[in-house]
Design a protein around this nucleic acid. Sequence first.
RNA 1: CCAGGGGUGACGGAGUGGCCAAUCGUAGCAGACUGUAAAUCUGCCGGGUUUUCCCUGCGGAGGUUCGAAUCCUCCCCCCUGGACCA
Length: 360
Amino acid sequence: MELQERFELMQAVGEEIVEPDQLLALLEKNEKIIAYDGFEPSGQIHIAQGILRAINVNKITKAGVKFKMLVADWHAWANNKMGGDLEKIKIVGQYFIEVWKAGGMDLANVEFVWASDLMKNSNYWKLVLQISKTNALKRFVRTAEIMGREESLDKLTGANIIYSCMQTADIFMLGAKITQLGMDQRKVNMLAREIGPQLGFWKPVVVSHHMLMGLGQPAPTVNSDKVKRTIDLKMSKSKPDTSIFMTDTAEDIKRKVGKAWCPEGQTSENPVLEYCKYIIFEKFDQIIVERAEKFGGTVILNSYANLEKAFAEKQIHPLDLKHAVAGYLDQLLQPVRRHFDDNAYAHGLLEKVKSFTVTR
RNA sequence: CCAGGGGUGACGGAGUGGCCAAUCGUAGCAGACUGUAAAUCUGCCGGGUUUUCCCUGCGGAGGUUCGAAUCCUCCCCCCUGGACCA
């Protein structure tokens, strides 16, 4: 594949790339490149981590980059997920892997890595310590948003500081020249760029993907910072009715999409349109919106741009669009549901995960 | 370790011996209204399938009292300042 084409695939993934010319240089070397993303097993997995993650991984592996999916069990433990119960976290991690395997990800160049295995290497903890020594405590505190935490000395624990150092160490232990996580993870990735060379490693290229927004009404805009806003809006499993889980039933999807925030004619911060753009048009060539004759009959939109234009001009009513979106999402989730129905191992995992209480 | 302040339901935050399952706000849920959602209005919002009924309950364990979220004792945790350590 041509260099330019590979670069464009990466650009399609990166809402922000630091820095593009360094990415280009990296691709140009034509050596084996590893990109990674990490996940705290913290409850049910939603479509942003499932479908969107698969779409992006597929682009990256298509560009000739190997992808490592880090199951961050110890990180989740440090961050007190699943009540801080490592055994539960590991079960959730196994469930995550089952979802990914069934969720349309091309696995040929994907490797699943458990954090608890990664850190069996004693160099891991040596590196964590080295990293922790590079900066004043304050600097690590400022990365709190990667854990979904406030930058508050009262609320963070020592484990949260270790977490930041671990996540930085992960990059180098995995050999990741590209960190390909969500926009909410940029602070640690930036830290890694800064201290990688100091510790004799490389400066990873940070390719941050878009964060899918939740279905609920967006909070009023408090700060103008774009990254903060993204994080405010992002889909969160702690609000179950504003995120669609990978194993939701058709009824769940209908209900959740039906309740979604979707002002007529408004194209910004509109989750229903956003899912069309980032998911449905990535998977289908067109969206068929079925409508009663009195509302104009069925229409076919063959690109997101056309849909957005029609919606802005109020030619497409939110309710009709919602029906269509729910249908397409349901189609995409069918194989996952089927896997969890047919496979006894996967089914058992899901039942367990559903029985666990999610903690923030 | 010492002194002072504090721990209340998903969160914020009242209540300081009976009228407290616990004011109020937010979130959540249900309904009404809009061809969606939102806004607005109404109801619910610890559990028991209805209840003027029962159970659980205000950090934990005991105690005083006819009666405790409210008083006492011990313990745990958090905050502020200090001591100790360096």
